[in-house]
């Protein structure tokens, strides 16, 4: 029944947080299938469990119960270093606050994931240069993040997400820190990537942004509302 076309298969995922004897059920049984080539938006108010779901999809965290099959591999009970390997290979992250290293140039920031993947220096350099060129940043490669505009910084972050050629791009409020024009540019890039076959999962609380996706899923109080 496992179709090779399925990228993400979440089944009855729960996540509890325990703080000082008080257990909070943040996710209350989430099941979700995302096919390769999908572009879905997950929306919800803050406190709805949206971020927790993103952490689990991005294998930054493991669920309390339920199974998560990512690209035909069960990642729901993996150890920390195995999760790091999966993140490195399968997922490209785009964060709201860009999360670029300020001491490194745009090019070095883009190269970073491929260093952890063990790609050879000459090969990773060439690949990063090509991706940056494709995103129109050929003049900014040696600039530090603080010498770039917000829109440019987010494009560098997208380039970084593409570096290890992952199946999944996971974008967490990618336009949250950008003006309307730059935000529009970023969404267009994501759409383009989707057209080239990348699976995109977009987390946002803005309806205007969510409508760029092919499918919108709403999360409320730890449950999905289709």
């Amino acid at each position: 029944m496992k179709s090779t076309n399925v990228l993400i298969n979440l089944s009855k995922i729960t996540k509890d947080y325990v703080t000082e004897d008080i257990t909070t059920n943040v996710l209350k049984g989430i099941s979700l299938v995302v096919n390769k080539g999908d572009f879905i938006a997950i929306t919800g108010r803050s406190g709805s469990g949206k971020s927790t779901l993103m952490n689990i999809i991005g294998v930054l965290d493991i669920p309390t119960s339920g199974t998560y099959i990512l690209n035909n591999v069960d990642v729901s009970k993996m150890e920390e270093d195995e999760l790091a390997f999966v993140r490195n290979k399968e997922i490209g992250f785009v964060f709201q606050s860009f999360n670029l290293l300020n001491r490194a140039s745009a090019l070095e920031n883009v190269i970073l994931p491929s260093i952890y993947a063990g790609v050879k220096p000459s090969e990773r350099h060439d690949r990063a240069v090509k991706i940056l060129k494709d995103l129109g940043l050929q003049d900014k490669m040696n600039n530090r993040p603080n010498q770039l505009s917000g829109g440019q910084q987010q494009r560098v972050a997208i380039a970084r997400a593409l570096m290890n050629n992952p199946e999944l791009i996971l974008a967490d409020e990618p336009t949250g820190n950008l003006d309307t024009k730059s935000g529009q540019d970023v969404m267009n890039i994501l759409k383009n990537l989707n057209n080239q076959g990348k699976t995109i999962v977009l987390i946002t609380h803005e309806a205007d942004i969510a409508k760029h996706a092919k499918k919108i899923i709403h999360i409320e109080d730890g449950k999905l509302i289709h």
Partner: peptide, 12 residues
């Protein structure tokens, strides 16, 4: 945190 998100292991 970022390095770990991008695939750095504990040992890295």
């Amino acid at each position: 945190g970022l390095r770990k998100a991008l695939g750095a292991k504990r040992s890295d």
